[in-house]
Write a protein that binds this DNA or RNA. Structure first.
Lengths: 192, 192
DNA sequence: GTCTATAGCGCGATAGAC
DNA sequence: GTCTATCGCGCTATAGAC
């Protein structure tokens, strides 16, 4: 269908814009210009901006987590899995014309301007990532690949915050090279 | 002077608002309501929003870095210094009515909407923090308090990204307890 | 489904009285 | 310095023709 294609284009464009400039700096007019339809057409698919954002998160979060699950289920070593997980974030950073952050990282900054169901969706995304990272770390520790002090849950939280923060810092500061250096340091830490 | 007092109130309010909802969600009207003067009066002190933001950064960055320097110059152990540095971020999170992020962390998310002199000020802040963290880590390693693989520069970048990211995550997710858990994990990592 | 047209509001910013 | 008043713009959103 042509209609669902427009819908997808709107979602894709909105996501890219939010990941670049943030939710509060993105407008229907911006989307309109990229997709090539009028603002009113966007309202046909997503009556309010909240509707658009809900649809965006309902698409983004399961997709991202499914990719993570694929990594976790792969036959690679825990170290490779961790590198691939970090690679998802690096790919986000350097895809597109401008450096992008994680969708939910951007929304984390703007979280106090969201209504509560949306907050819930964002924090749910964080939680699901931490759960998967914990599982990954547990595997690595059990297999003798990883060895670090403290507990895996706290370490998973540390890694997730680090990646989300690093995406924002790298955008303003040194770009991908900064990101890669930090990931390498992280891998050293867990292997030690 | 009464005038400079109003100016300070405007800066304080603007900073708190940006650290809570972000630059693009904050308006002169919002500041006006808190300070109790009209929008036009704010334009008297800061003709444009950029002027306000420049003044804000010129006040925030040196102040924050001076506090960091005080910590570095104290006679404490490297571990205590690191904990106190992290404590600066925790204090930011839980001061005020709502959870706040670091000013430059918020601006990092919105960096693609800033003009280049402002970007420069933000990335300068990141750099100065990383420099001081590197120094702190070097001290700890030299004194035998810290022991971790990899190099201190990358570790400093990791810690800074972690703290900036954690402020954003904790605001949406589990608040101060999440933050404290991650800091504790970090301290374990560097001491190992 | 997509369009034109427009309502209604909040924004940053300025002019000029006091 | 602070005010009232106002301009011009961009925003979200809606109504109604095609």
């Amino acid at each position: 269908m042509k209609s669902s294609n427009t819908r997808t284009q709107i979602l894709d464009t909105a996501q890219e814009l939010i990941q670049t400039v943030g939710l509060n700096a993105m407008s229907y007019a911006d989307i309109s210009q990229v997709v090539g339809v009028r603002k009113a057409s966007i309202h046909y698919y997503f009556p309010s901006k909240d509707d658009l954002l809900v649809a965006l998160l309902e698409r983004y979060s399961p997709y991202f987590l499914r990719v993570v699950d694929t990594i976790l289920d792969s036959p690679e070593s825990a170290e490779v899995k961790l590198r691939r997980y970090c690679g998802l974030f690096e790919a986000t950073l350097s895809s597109g014309k401008q450096d992008k952050a994680c969708l939910c990282g951007m929304l984390g900054a703007e979280v106090k301007t969201l209504n509560s169901p949306l907050c819930e969706q964002v924090s749910q995304f964080y939680q699901e990532n931490e759960i998967r990272l914990t599982k990954l770390l547990n595997e690595g520790v059990a297999g003798g690949v990883f060895n670090f002090p403290g507990d895996t849950t706290a370490m998973a939280q540390l890694i997730f915050s680090l990646l989300e923060g690093e995406l924002l810092i790298a955008r303003a500061y040194k770009g991908v090279s900064h990101f890669r250096g930090v990931v390498e340091q992280l891998v050293q830490l867990v292997k030690a």
